[in-house]
Write a protein that binds this DNA or RNA. Sequence first.
DNA 1: ATATTTTTTCTTTTTATTCTGAAATTTCCG
DNA 2: CGGAAATTTCAGAATAAAAAGAAAAAATAT
Lengths: 177, 177
Amino acid sequence: MELKPISERFVLHWGEMGSRWGVNRTVAQIHALLYLAGRPMEAEEITQTLGVARSNVSTSLKELLSWKLVRIVHLRGDRRDHFETSTDVWELFKLIVEGRRQREIDPTIQVLKSCLDSPDLEAEDPSTLTRIRETLDFIEILTAWADEMLRLKPETLMKTLGLGAKISQTLRRNSAD
Amino acid sequence: MELKPISERFVLHWGEMGSRWGVNRTVAQIHALLYLAGRPMEAEEITQTLGVARSNVSTSLKELLSWKLVRIVHLRGDRRDHFETSTDVWELFKLIVEGRRQREIDPTIQVLKSCLDSPDLEAEDPSTLTRIRETLDFIEILTAWADEMLRLKPETLMKTLGLGAKISQTLRRNSAD
DNA sequence: ATATTTTTTCTTTTTATTCTGAAATTTCCG
DNA sequence: CGGAAATTTCAGAATAAAAAGAAAAAATAT
């Protein structure tokens, strides 16, 4: 597939943004490509379209699969794996937040808890310990917020936050809970 | 200053987390150190404590200053710059979100707008353009949410989100708006 | 079963980032 | 003004991350 100018701009920019947020550029590009394509693509086609190594695509797809951002589908009469992602931005957002939470936030919470549950507690300045506790509290509260928000359907959330007027067709469309 | 075991664990972990979110490790470590210290420190002391090059500290502090996460203070009878950060987690969070918004979200919005305002529009698949538009809508709505949330004082936000019961001393303390 | 296609793994190369150390610059004190 | 202290800049070294390419493995067809 030959990328048209606007699609290319989108995909390349997404790759850049990925880098800035700690996501491998190729991983981000592949996801952007599948998102824009809106249809399953096989690895070789992705390889050609992005102009990267086949092995790189394989590795990156594995990562996207592990984050549940991409799934494998099969097309009739084609033995190759095809890959697709959701075109629902709200669903994608939820998956991304959930993934980062599991991979980064939860481990951080564990570290902070182990800090506050350490035998070396007396050695530390009490105000330091207070700040570590405040940090832990804050992160736990924040993840609780996030849980609440992600559970809501978008339009409920909009209303809750008093943004009713700004609700767009985009988010209004996909809602079932 | 010699880092005590728990502080060291915190600072090193914060550095790791920074890396995963696209923040230079030294930058994150310095911020963590100033946060735990809860007092102004001069660059040389930071250098010694973290065991990195003086120049690295200088560069990293400049970055933290540009993000408004750290400010310079002067101590009586000491001509050197001293650096301190807020110990208010909510305030820090707001500064971090605001910074990333300016540096990454706003430029992305510009790119998406320019995509949708391009002379090459006809060449693209209409469904692709729809998805780009949906992405733009989503990001704009999300930043509007974030603006709303960050404007609230923490306790109001808790109540709004129905998390009243979980509100902690941590966030209850610093509220004036 | 064997050959072919497809996918994955693994090592090497390349690229990008981070960090250092030396030199240059700035600040500010007597 | 000097001149010492403090800070910044910058070129190069070290490190880490990303990507490529070759080889192995797996899957599927004949």
